[in-house]
């Protein structure tokens, strides 16, 4: 629906270079979450399910909604929310980044 592409930059916006919004990851790509733009009410919900800084995620199915795996659980998320989560892709699907 309303895909407003205006991530109101918070005053302390971190450097997003080298980070990929979660919805643009490739299928099966593993990435580490570096920054979550918390300007949406539902972000807290994502965070308590493990989608927050420092967790490693894997994109299982791209699309809208997409499926990702975090802390061993598969979660379906609207692309609308996913694009507020920025992650650093890991070199391989190995354990440590």
């Amino acid at each position: 629906m309303s895909q407003t592409v205006s991530p109101t930059p918070a005053p302390d916006t971190p450097d997003l270079t080298g980070l990929t919004p979660m919805h643009q990851l490739k299928t099966h790509q593993v990435a580490e979450i570096k920054y979550v733009d918390a300007s949406h009410d539902d972000i807290a919900r994502l965070k308590s399910m493990g989608i927050c800084q420092g967790r490693r995620i894997q994109l299982i199915q791209a699309g809208d909604p997409l499926i990702l795996k975090v802390v061993g659980v598969r979660i379906g998320v609207s692309a609308r929310l996913a694009k507020r989560v920025y992650a650093e892709p890991c070199c391989s699907s190995g354990k440590k980044c």
Partner: peptide
Amino acid sequence: GDTRPLVIELP
């Protein structure tokens, strides 16, 4: 109002 975005665990 916007529809709330989906966040659902797939057990």
